[in-house]
């Protein structure tokens, strides 16, 4: 496994994924949507597992550029 977070396009069928993400939130209240997002973050984080990558992901999400 690479110890570098992937920040280049990596999802095949990106539009499909994005549509699925929106669908998952459809009809949910703000609170339920926030809860869903939180669970999704935790599920994905566990799948990644690698602490270095997770820290890089947190920095990337905060719109901080690498070093």
């Amino acid at each position: 496994m690479s110890d570098q977070l992937t920040l280049t396009p990596n999802i095949a069928g990106a539009d499909d994924f994005y549509a699925e993400l929106l669908t998952a939130h459809e009809g949910l209240s703000k609170a339920d949507s926030d809860a869903l997002n939180a669970r999704l973050v935790l599920v994905l984080a566990n799948h990644i597992g690698d602490r270095v990558i997770l820290s890089q992901a947190l920095a990337a999400a905060a719109l901080k550029s690498e070093e």
Binding site: D34, A35, A38, R39, V41, L42, V43, N46
Partner: peptide, 23 residues
């Protein structure tokens, strides 16, 4: 508020998925 949202997410997941229990 977000600290609570994340905490509750961990608890909800812990009922179904083992991965969340150590959290």
């Amino acid at each position: 508020e977000m600290s609570r949202v994340l905490r509750d997410a961990v608890l909800d997941l812990s009922e179904v998925h083992a991965f969340a229990r150590p959290l």
